[in-house]
Design a protein around this nucleic acid. Structure first.
Lengths: 335, 335
DNA sequence: TTGTATGCGTTATCAG
DNA sequence: CTGATAACGCATACAA
């Protein structure tokens, strides 16, 4: 079934069929109906490739994320895909992994698919140096780039993120104000947002006059799915330093810490307070339940798609949309 | 940059450029090099639409899943996407939700995008009646359909799944053999695999001569992310019936049960044994750790992609690939 | 309001 | 081995 077949059967020209298809109002109602009936009858769908060739667009958005099975990223992808879907866009998903070169490859690959825009989910797409981020600049010359949970200043790049620095600063401050001054900071990524969180923690410590906090900052290398490995790791740290508070950059890390405490017979929150990050479903899986920073992912996703739709419509949209996270207090903290 | 520009600069015809592009061996090496140099130099990429028009394919696989933020589905999508990626295929992802009509719509939509095949992730795409599954038959006439964790017999439909019936039968049997005869069965989906698991439980009970098990079978309607709701739900059930074992169709449900037990002061595994399903990361998030049935998702995903590649290559491939799940014993069981 | 003709960038089928 | 040229299915400027 092609547009020619339809036009034959309906006794009109292909131009008229095309007009009906594209909702042009310059078609007489009865002609429209005649054509529509044939289209329905034969269940005709225009060929996307031919259509794309004329329009240079397929109403498809490329979504890149490092690992769609990561709890946080998966949810982000889900929200974004849903919103795009309900606005008539489809999603081309690529899971890139965390290697920069591979990410670059996937990006150019997805651009060659003529997507209308690209969404980079998660802050691990943004590096520290100009050179590392050059690939984003290059691509932004061709299509708009949307950043979820990351920030990068460049024309045609739009950032939607949570102020992780401030959120972490406040979380740490509230723990400090509760009288806990020996706080272990556990993190697992040097991504854009990972750095922001860390800085927030450090500045909070300094602001409260604590100077020897560097030894309390520990990097965990393993998989976030291996809770027991995280627990062992924490247990190792506990041999060297004493702490009565833990703040982590991810909920899963905090879960590992809780597990460590349980094994070591340390009582939470009496002897140890724990704060996670992301406010994921993991927070309610453990006992006591985990206090965690909510970075309002759903709102971010919504804002991202709205901004994107605006951009594609040629409207002027904010280059940055910044949300404020907030600490959700549960059983692992007393304050 | 088009194929014409390249052919001009290289001093050959577009046919030759096309041959170089598509790796035809009927090109003299020096001609090939000459063309390749120009292509590299101008960083030329063929237009996908035009290419699709000729090839009727874009090496793209459509992936449908109800909810990519579901722990199990997200991991499945991840594995599949990765394997496809490394075999030169891209993935068009659609999250459909659980409504049948909406699923049908998305399916026909994604077919119209000329994908080379369609992967339906999760058993919720298969209904009970012939009529419910008609939409799958219709589509299978156009492209191969791959089912992950579900089974459906029809030409051009390939099923890869775990024998959930048997796995659940064995899990229940091992609990029964440990002397626990009052077992609560908690489930949350009437999907294809949901039914299989349930049947496995029922048959195990009957095989051990237990007759009044129906009242022990309970359906939970809410979200799997609301662990506390699950706990409350379990707590309500406990008012009516007494049980010393729990088996659930999903790890998250089991986590909710553990939470209930902790609140009620019931000791696991001494007074209550719990077995979950999926062997997800949640199993190690709780204390004691959750015994769970591993349905070898990763192997399923691998097999699915291998089968798909074979099918696309025109090879004869098995219509069904069935894996055996097995119980991974952890702290919530004594046996 | 409708029809005609052309372009879009490839691939594939022929000759040469 | 290489080059011309015809599809491919649609959108659209232009003509009627």
């Amino acid at each position: 079934m092609t547009i020619y077949d339809i036009s034959n059967k309906a006794g009109v020209s292909i131009a008229t069929v095309s007009r009906v298809l594209n909702g042009s109002n310059k078609v007489r109602p009865d002609t429209r109906k005649k054509v529509m009936d044939i289209i329905e009858q034969y269940d005709y769908t225009p060929n996307v490739f031919a259509r794309g060739m004329g329009l240079h667009s397929l109403k498809t958005i490329g979504i890149l994320c490092a690992d769609s099975s990561d709890l946080f990223l998966a949810k982000a992808v889900y929200y974004i895909e849903q919103e795009l879907q309900s606005n008539g866009y489809e999603s081309l998903l690529c899971c890139t992994g965390y290697n920069l070169d591979i990410k670059k490859n996937y990006l150019s690959l997805i651009v060659s698919k003529k997507v209308d825009a690209i969404v980079l989910v998660g802050s691990n797409f943004i590096g520290t140096t100009e050179e590392e981020n050059q690939y984003i600049k290059d691509v932004s010359a061709q299509v708009p780039i949307m950043l979820l949970n990351a920030s990068f200043s460049h024309p045609n790049v739009y950032s939607i993120y949570c102020d992780d620095y401030r959120s972490m600063f406040e979380a740490a401050t509230s723990m400090l104000d509760a009288g806990i001054r020996d706080i272990l900071y556990l993190y697992n990524a040097d991504s854009y947002s990972g750095k922001k969180k860390l800085k927030g923690f450090q500045d909070a410590m300094q602001a409260r006059g604590i100077t020897d906090y560097e030894k309390f900052i520990q990097f965990y290398e393993g998989s976030l799915e291996q809770i027991n490995d995280i627990a062992s790791f924490t247990s190792q740290i506990a041999k060297d330093i004493t702490f009565h508070g833990i703040i982590t950059s991810e909920d899963a890390l905090a879960i590992g810490c809780i597990k460590y405490a349980q094994k070591a017979g340390i009582c939470i929150p009496d002897d140890l307070s724990v704060i996670g990050y992301n406010n994921s479903m993991l927070t309610t899986c453990c006992t006591p339940e985990l206090s965690s920073v909510d970075n309002c992912l759903k709102s971010q996703a919504h804002q991202l798609v709205q901004t994107l739709l605006g951009v594609l419509d040629g409207e002027a949209m904010p280059a940055k949309s910044i949300f404020s996270g907030k600490l959700v207090k549960r059983g692992t903290t007393r304050f």
